[in-house]
Amino acid sequence: MANEVETKLTKALFDELQSERFVTIATIDHETGGPNVSAISWLLAKDEQTILIAVDSRSRIIENIKENNKAAISLIANESTFSIQGSAAVKEEKLSGIPLKMSLVEMKIEEVRDVMFYGSKIVTEPGYDKTYDKEAASRLDRQIMEAMRKA
Protein backbone atom coordinates (compact mmCIF):
# COMPACT_ATOMS: atom_id res chain seq x y z
CA MET A 1 0.00 0.00 0.00
CA ALA A 2 1.48 3.33 -1.05
CA ASN A 3 1.97 6.43 1.10
CA GLU A 4 2.57 4.69 4.42
CA VAL A 5 4.99 6.77 6.50
CA GLU A 6 6.85 5.65 9.62
CA THR A 7 9.59 7.26 11.75
CA LYS A 8 11.47 3.97 12.16
CA LEU A 9 11.88 0.61 10.46
CA THR A 10 9.01 -1.81 10.77
CA LYS A 11 9.88 -5.30 12.04
CA ALA A 12 9.59 -6.65 8.47
CA LEU A 13 12.03 -4.05 7.07
CA PHE A 14 14.39 -4.46 10.02
CA ASP A 15 14.51 -8.20 9.26
CA GLU A 16 15.18 -7.52 5.56
CA LEU A 17 18.20 -5.40 6.53
CA GLN A 18 19.97 -8.09 8.53
CA SER A 19 21.95 -9.38 5.57
CA GLU A 20 23.74 -8.03 2.54
CA ARG A 21 21.37 -6.87 -0.22
CA PHE A 22 21.09 -4.54 -3.19
CA VAL A 23 19.93 -0.99 -2.41
CA THR A 24 20.67 2.47 -3.72
CA ILE A 25 21.75 5.41 -1.60
CA ALA A 26 21.17 9.00 -2.62
CA THR A 27 23.36 11.77 -1.24
CA ILE A 28 23.92 15.42 -2.14
CA ASP A 29 27.00 15.73 -4.35
CA HIS A 30 29.68 17.76 -2.59
CA GLU A 31 30.84 19.40 -5.83
CA THR A 32 27.67 19.99 -7.85
CA GLY A 33 25.03 20.23 -5.11
CA GLY A 34 22.88 17.88 -7.19
CA PRO A 35 21.72 14.37 -6.41
CA ASN A 36 24.20 11.50 -6.41
CA VAL A 37 22.93 7.91 -6.44
CA SER A 38 25.11 4.86 -5.78
CA ALA A 39 24.35 1.14 -5.62
CA ILE A 40 25.57 -0.55 -2.42
CA SER A 41 25.14 -3.94 -0.77
CA TRP A 42 26.87 -3.82 2.61
CA LEU A 43 24.32 -2.44 5.02
CA LEU A 44 22.84 -3.60 8.28
CA ALA A 45 19.97 -2.35 10.43
CA LYS A 46 21.54 -1.95 13.86
CA ASP A 47 18.16 -1.16 15.42
CA GLU A 48 14.83 0.33 14.27
CA GLN A 49 16.36 3.82 14.06
CA THR A 50 19.87 3.11 12.75
CA ILE A 51 21.37 1.68 9.55
CA LEU A 52 25.08 0.97 9.22
CA ILE A 53 26.67 1.10 5.76
CA ALA A 54 30.15 -0.05 4.73
CA VAL A 55 31.65 1.70 1.70
CA ASP A 56 35.09 2.08 0.18
CA SER A 57 36.81 4.97 1.95
CA ARG A 58 37.44 6.59 -1.44
CA SER A 59 33.74 6.52 -2.36
CA ARG A 60 32.06 9.76 -3.32
CA ILE A 61 29.44 8.87 -0.71
CA ILE A 62 31.94 9.66 2.06
CA GLU A 63 32.78 13.18 0.83
CA ASN A 64 29.12 13.88 0.11
CA ILE A 65 28.03 12.93 3.64
CA LYS A 66 30.82 14.99 5.20
CA GLU A 67 29.57 18.04 3.29
CA ASN A 68 25.80 17.41 3.68
CA ASN A 69 24.58 14.70 6.04
CA LYS A 70 21.21 14.05 4.38
CA ALA A 71 20.82 10.66 2.69
CA ALA A 72 18.08 8.38 1.39
CA ILE A 73 18.18 4.64 0.82
CA SER A 74 15.88 3.04 -1.73
CA LEU A 75 14.97 -0.52 -0.77
CA ILE A 76 12.86 -3.04 -2.68
CA ALA A 77 11.38 -5.54 -0.23
CA ASN A 78 8.12 -7.09 0.89
CA GLU A 79 6.49 -6.54 -2.53
CA SER A 80 7.06 -2.78 -2.41
CA THR A 81 9.64 0.00 -2.69
CA PHE A 82 10.68 2.03 0.34
CA SER A 83 12.52 5.31 0.77
CA ILE A 84 14.44 5.44 4.05
CA GLN A 85 15.61 8.99 4.77
CA GLY A 86 17.82 10.34 7.49
CA SER A 87 21.03 11.94 8.62
CA ALA A 88 24.29 10.13 7.97
CA ALA A 89 27.77 10.47 9.43
CA VAL A 90 31.06 8.67 9.03
CA LYS A 91 31.26 6.61 12.22
CA GLU A 92 34.66 5.01 11.44
CA GLU A 93 37.11 6.20 8.79
CA LYS A 94 38.66 2.70 8.67
CA LEU A 95 36.52 -0.30 9.54
CA SER A 96 38.71 -2.57 11.66
CA GLY A 97 39.40 -6.18 10.74
CA ILE A 98 38.86 -5.62 7.01
CA PRO A 99 41.70 -6.02 4.47
CA LEU A 100 40.37 -3.17 2.30
CA LYS A 101 40.10 0.45 3.40
CA MET A 102 36.40 0.58 4.19
CA SER A 103 34.55 3.31 6.07
CA LEU A 104 31.53 2.80 8.28
CA VAL A 105 28.63 5.20 7.82
CA GLU A 106 25.84 5.45 10.37
CA MET A 107 22.46 6.72 9.22
CA LYS A 108 19.89 7.82 11.80
CA ILE A 109 16.44 7.21 10.34
CA GLU A 110 14.01 10.12 10.24
CA GLU A 111 11.40 8.75 7.84
CA VAL A 112 10.46 5.46 6.19
CA ARG A 113 8.04 5.89 3.33
CA ASP A 114 6.37 3.31 1.09
CA VAL A 115 6.87 4.89 -2.34
CA MET A 116 5.39 2.20 -4.56
CA PHE A 117 3.00 3.59 -7.14
CA TYR A 118 -0.68 2.96 -6.54
CA GLY A 119 -2.25 -0.39 -7.39
CA SER A 120 0.96 -2.33 -7.87
CA LYS A 121 3.42 -4.64 -6.15
CA ILE A 122 6.93 -5.88 -6.79
CA VAL A 123 6.85 -9.46 -8.07
CA THR A 124 10.61 -10.04 -8.31
CA GLU A 125 13.23 -8.37 -6.14
CA PRO A 126 16.52 -7.39 -7.81
CA GLY A 127 19.33 -9.89 -7.55
CA TYR A 128 23.00 -9.65 -8.36
CA ASP A 129 26.03 -11.88 -8.74
CA LYS A 130 29.63 -11.11 -7.75
CA THR A 131 31.77 -11.12 -10.89
CA TYR A 132 35.13 -11.58 -9.19
CA ASP A 133 36.59 -14.50 -7.21
CA LYS A 134 33.51 -16.03 -5.55
CA GLU A 135 35.44 -17.40 -2.56
CA ALA A 136 37.21 -14.09 -1.92
CA ALA A 137 33.92 -12.19 -2.32
CA SER A 138 32.17 -14.47 0.16
CA ARG A 139 35.01 -14.11 2.69
CA LEU A 140 35.00 -10.31 2.35
CA ASP A 141 31.21 -10.18 2.68
CA ARG A 142 31.37 -12.18 5.93
CA GLN A 143 34.18 -10.00 7.32
CA ILE A 144 32.36 -6.77 6.57
CA MET A 145 28.99 -7.91 7.93
CA GLU A 146 30.70 -9.22 11.09
CA ALA A 147 32.57 -5.94 11.58
CA MET A 148 29.33 -3.99 11.21
CA ARG A 149 27.57 -6.22 13.74
CA LYS A 150 30.36 -5.50 16.24
CA ALA A 151 30.25 -1.72 15.62
Rank of each mutant, 00 (worst) to 15 (best):
E63W: 02
V105F: 04
I53V: 13
Q49F: 08
A12D: 09
E6Q: 08
V105S: 03
D47E: 13
Q143Y: 02
T10W: 01
R139I: 00
I84A: 02
T50F: 03
A89S: 10
R139M: 00
A151N: 13
I98A: 14
A2N: 15
A54Q: 08
G86A: 15
T50V: 11
R149Q: 09
A136Q: 14
R139P: 00
E135P: 01
E16R: 11
A12Q: 13
A88C: 12
L43W: 14
G119L: 03
D141L: 04
T81Y: 00
L75S: 11
S120M: 05
D129N: 04
N64T: 04
T124Y: 06
A77W: 06
P126R: 08
T131I: 13
T7N: 09
K150P: 10
F14D: 10
T124K: 10
S87G: 15
I109F: 02
R60C: 06
S80L: 10
E92D: 14
D29I: 05
N36Y: 14
I51K: 01
M148Y: 13
S74V: 10
E48I: 09
G119Y: 01
Q143C: 03
E67R: 11
E135W: 02
G33F: 05
A39K: 13
G86Q: 15
M116S: 08
M148A: 07
A88V: 13
S138F: 12
E135N: 06
L9V: 00
I76E: 14
E67G: 03
T81D: 02
S103R: 00
A147T: 10
F22W: 12
T32R: 02
Q49V: 11
E92K: 15
A45F: 05
L95M: 08
L104T: 07
D114C: 05
K94S: 10
E135M: 09
D29Y: 09
A2G: 15
A26I: 07
R58K: 14
A151M: 09
G119S: 04
T131S: 04
S138P: 04
A147L: 11
E92F: 03
R142V: 07
N64P: 12
W42Q: 12
